[in-house]
Structures are given as C-alpha cells and as structure tokens.
Simulated scan of single mutants.
Amino acid sequence: MSSVSEGRIPDSSVRSVTHGPVRAVLRADDGTGIEAVYDPCTADDATDTVIVVAHGFTGSADRPAVRRAVEIFSRYAAVVTFSFRGHGRSGGLSTVGDREVLDLAAAVAWARSLGHRRVVTVGFSMGGSVVLRHAALYGDRAADAGDGGGDGSVAERGGRTGAHSDAHADVVVSVSAPARWYYRGTAPMRRLHWMVTRPTGRLVGRYGFRTRIHREAWDPVPLSPVGAAALIAPVPLLIVHGDRDPYFPLDHPRTLAAAAGDAAELWLERGMGHAENAADETLLTRIADWAARR
C-alpha cells in the first residue's frame, strides 16, 4: 500500500525556543505533509520532556478529545499533536496504520528539534498500534519482523535509515490498541472494515468522517502490534484498555502485555469505552503522571 500526497504543502521552519502554541507542516520520510501543533508546558517547573499524541482513526490534531488531552498533558510536559496522513489538514491518504509510523517519526523528530531530550509517545486506538510499531522500528532493538505478521511494509523498510533517524521514543503509552490486524469480532470493527475496504465505505469516510482512505490493501502486511510489543523492551511501556471497549475485547491488551513482558504495565480501566473519546480527565492525568515518573 502506498500513500499519494494530495497537493503541495509548503515546508515550514521551526523555532528552537517557543513561548506559545506553534503550528507547522512536517515532512514524513516519504514526502507526505503532516500538520502538527506544539503546546508548551504550562507548569512553572517545566522539564525537557515532551508528550507526542497520536490520535485514533478518523481523528485529527484539532478534535475536541485530542485538545482535552493536550490541556491535561501540558500540565506535566510540552505536547506535540499532529494529524495522521489522510486526516485533518495533513496530506496523503490514510493507510490505517502502515505508513502512519512515518508520520509519528516526523512528529517525534520535530519535538526533539525544539530542544526536548525526553519523548513520550501516547497513542489511541489506531494511534496506539502506531506507537507500538514506532517504538519497535525506531528503538535500539529495531529488527526485522519475522513473527508471521509481515516484515516488508514501507515503514519497516524505512526503519531508522530515513531523514528522521533520531525519532525514537523514551517512554510509550498505548491506549485502546488492537493486538492483531484484521480483527472483525465486534460490530464496530466490522463497520470499520466496510468503510476501509469498500468504495462506498471510503466515500462515507471522506465525506462523513473527513478521512481520506487509500483504496489498496496492505501488501505486504506490516508488523503486527503484538509483534512490535515484543521488541520494545527495555523502553517503559504502559498499556491502557477499557473493560467496556466496544471495538477490542480484553484479550487484546492482555496479549500485548504478555508479549512485552517485564517492560509493560497493564491498566484495565473499569467502565471505560474506547480511545481518546472515552479517556476522562482522571485517566489522562494518571497517564501523564506515570509518564513523567518513568
């Protein structure tokens, strides 16, 4: 699967010192323009930590749930948000988790270019799977993905060799992520697969959810989230999942945690639904506090 840029988006220069929100257009390693927003830490004792937030499918940097997370996370650290390709004002087409790892790498590299030495990635749903694969591919243990989940996607072939070779994460938080691809065991996931794989569904995605979806299937299939989780150690990993998640049942987070081993901590949240829309202020505060102490 490949992504096609929709129109030219001019590159932007980034200031090394900022005192307020900054918007920029980044370039993923395949040339796709990615909109990004930097919010400085609001605490008096700001550190050199930055939290990079990866939204879920059909989200964007400006969605209310993402901005709510920014408001809470910025009490602990600076925050970078961005829109995955095919979402918001970013270029290209959504590959539903494959090339999106290049978008996250660009956002992490930008965060480091602003002077932050410690990067925490926090991903929700699709973004949760992307932060797992990103940590595996850009970490010290980056290796091929010989786990049966595929080892030849664009992102895997790029690895740390592209322009953003210093785009690794120091701490990873994955919220409401799937453990495996092609899961259709719930009604919401069957609807999502219809939207991604059918022409009519992609029209619904474009005009109903403002998400532009690539029409080609993965070939080859990228490294699975559970395969990536096994490669993340010793980077600290937090896996968060709601016990009322309508998309992915609890075997998904448990499988991820088991694959990650001692590097992972698992939170099963009572009464929580799915992803950023279900993450309330209390949970987001706990996540930020956990990340700040790792």
Score class of each variant (00 low, 15 high):
Asp251Asn: 13
Tyr247Leu: 11
Ser2Lys: 13
Asp44Tyr: 00
Arg8Phe: 08
Asp245Gln: 05
Ser74Tyr: 00
Leu256Ser: 10
Ala54Pro: 02
Thr161Val: 04
Arg63Gln: 10
Pro188Lys: 09
Arg15Cys: 10
Asp39Ser: 15
Arg180Ser: 06
Leu104Ile: 05
Gly33Lys: 13
Arg190Pro: 06
Ser74Val: 01
Asp39Gln: 14
Ala169Arg: 10
Thr18Glu: 12
Ala259Asn: 04
Thr186Ile: 04
Arg206Gln: 10
Leu237Arg: 10
Arg133Glu: 05
Arg75Lys: 13
Val120Asn: 03
Leu114Ala: 14
Asp144Trp: 01
Leu26Pro: 13
Thr32Ile: 15
Arg184Ala: 11
Val120Gly: 02
Gly227His: 02
Phe124Asp: 10
His164Tyr: 02
Leu231Tyr: 00
Ser60Gln: 08
Glu276Thr: 07
Val235Ile: 15
Gly148Trp: 08
Trp110Pro: 04
Ser3Phe: 00
Val204Ser: 08
Val50Gln: 02
Val25Pro: 00
Thr255Ala: 15
Ala291His: 12
Trp218Val: 00
Pro188Gly: 08
Ser129Phe: 00
Arg206Asn: 01
Asp245His: 09
Gly242Cys: 11
Thr58Ala: 13
Asp11His: 06
Ala24Asn: 04
Val235Arg: 12
Pro225Val: 07
Ala264Ser: 14
Thr255Pro: 01
Asp219Cys: 07
Ser3Pro: 00
Ile232Arg: 01
Ala135Met: 04
Phe248His: 07
Tyr182Phe: 12
Val204Met: 08
Arg198Lys: 14
Val154His: 07
Ile34Met: 06
Val196Phe: 03
Ile34Gln: 07
Val171His: 08
Leu132Phe: 01
Trp267Gln: 05
Phe124Gly: 10
Gly127Met: 12
Val4Ala: 10
Val130Asp: 11
Asp243Pro: 05
Pro21Val: 14
His116Met: 03
Gly271Met: 05
Ala279Gln: 05
His19Phe: 04
His19Thr: 15
Arg15Lys: 14
Val50Trp: 00
Thr197Asn: 09
Met1His: 06
